[in-house]
Amino acid sequence: MPTSPSSGVQEIRKSIAARLREIRLDAGLTGRDLAFHCGWHPAKSSRIENVKALPSDADIRAWCTACGAESEADDLIAISRNARSMYMEWRRLQRTGLRRLQESYVPLFERTRLFRVYSSHVISGLLQTPGYATALLSAITAFRRIPNDVEAAVNARMARSHVICEGNHRFAILLEECVLRHRIAGADAMAEQLGHLLAVMSLPSVSLGIIPFTAERHMWVIEPFMVFGDAEAGIELLSADVTLTAPNDTHLYLRAFSELQRLAVYGTQARRLIGAATAALK
């Protein structure tokens, strides 16, 4: 079973803590000794070694200096910064609203040639209509209690989706059938959204598969994710946006995508599922 995306970050944090402990032990210092040299409470050393607290850059440098291992500091700081950048809490990314977040993805979207997208909860942002996006981003704004810039955020989301029709991009997109049925928006907006899916299916750059309720699952429903080319994966959690670039991590999501593809239906069968979801709106 694949590990959760945040577990990769946790493993990095554990490795940093373990290395700091080794450095302390090699220096012949106790946790209390280290705290004295660093000028902090002994509990802080224990919390760092037990992965209860992530050390700051200054903490790592002070730790290494106290242990006579200054040469270790730069590498550990770089690893620690990478762990922090992998796991970005939504409250930080969305603190000024949603528009800037939508715009921040544009360079990545424009340089990516092959998108692999798996959506288990909502229609992928790449395929959203203005009505659906407005309803979804309004719900996110209310839930997060962030500044309301939904109109501007929707416009930015629609603008970034130009990659669907322009440029040398290809899209392999998988939706769980439940995504078609979730009433994210009102009946009219949902009908428009489902109709848009049918239209997008005709684009030569898009392969849209639907995983039916009735699929005999050898791969369970997992968190939504997008793989950009072969080098980077983005995973959306309730609490954070996780970026994975380590080859083992991206390979794991590429493998999961391949397994999920085997469950999907395409063409006429996919259109039937979209049509049935549309009919259920009446």
Results as ranks from 00 to 15, higher is better:
residue 2 P to T: 12
residue 4 S to E: 14
residue 6 S to G: 15
residue 12 I to G: 00
residue 12 I to P: 00
residue 13 R to G: 03
residue 16 I to G: 01
residue 18 A to V: 15
residue 21 R to C: 04
residue 24 R to Q: 09
residue 28 G to C: 04
residue 32 R to S: 15
residue 35 A to K: 12
residue 42 P to G: 09
residue 42 P to N: 00
residue 42 P to W: 02
residue 43 A to T: 14
residue 45 S to I: 12
residue 50 N to V: 03
residue 51 V to M: 02
residue 54 L to M: 08
residue 56 S to D: 01
residue 60 I to S: 02
residue 62 A to I: 07
residue 62 A to Y: 08
residue 70 E to H: 11
residue 79 I to S: 11
residue 80 S to C: 00
residue 88 M to D: 15
residue 90 W to S: 09
residue 91 R to M: 03
residue 91 R to A: 09
residue 91 R to I: 05
residue 94 Q to H: 14
residue 97 G to T: 02
residue 98 L to E: 10
residue 98 L to S: 02
residue 104 S to G: 09
residue 115 F to G: 04
residue 116 R to P: 00
residue 117 V to I: 11
residue 125 G to K: 01
residue 128 Q to A: 06
residue 129 T to D: 06
residue 130 P to T: 04
residue 132 Y to W: 07
residue 135 A to H: 03
residue 141 T to R: 00
residue 143 F to V: 15
residue 145 R to V: 12
residue 146 I to P: 00
residue 146 I to F: 00
residue 146 I to W: 00
residue 150 V to H: 04
residue 153 A to Y: 01
residue 155 N to D: 14
residue 157 R to P: 06
residue 160 R to K: 06
residue 162 H to N: 04
residue 163 V to C: 05
residue 170 R to T: 13
residue 173 I to C: 07
residue 175 L to F: 11
residue 177 E to P: 07
residue 179 V to F: 15
residue 180 L to N: 02
residue 183 R to Q: 11
residue 193 Q to E: 08
residue 195 G to V: 08
residue 195 G to N: 13
residue 196 H to P: 14
residue 196 H to W: 15
residue 198 L to K: 15
residue 204 P to L: 01
residue 208 L to R: 05
residue 210 I to R: 00
residue 211 I to Y: 03
residue 214 T to C: 10
residue 219 M to G: 10
residue 222 I to Y: 05
residue 222 I to G: 13
residue 222 I to C: 13
residue 223 E to Q: 10
residue 223 E to T: 14
residue 224 P to F: 05
residue 224 P to R: 13
residue 225 F to N: 06
residue 227 V to S: 01
residue 228 F to C: 06
residue 229 G to L: 06
residue 233 A to E: 01
residue 235 I to G: 02
residue 236 E to Q: 06
residue 237 L to T: 02
residue 238 L to G: 03
residue 240 A to I: 02
residue 245 T to R: 09
residue 246 A to S: 03
residue 249 D to E: 13
residue 251 H to C: 13
residue 251 H to T: 14
residue 252 L to V: 09
residue 256 A to F: 03
residue 257 F to G: 11
residue 262 R to M: 12
residue 264 A to H: 07
residue 268 T to W: 04
residue 270 A to D: 09
residue 273 L to Q: 05
residue 279 A to K: 05
residue 281 L to K: 05
residue 281 L to Y: 04
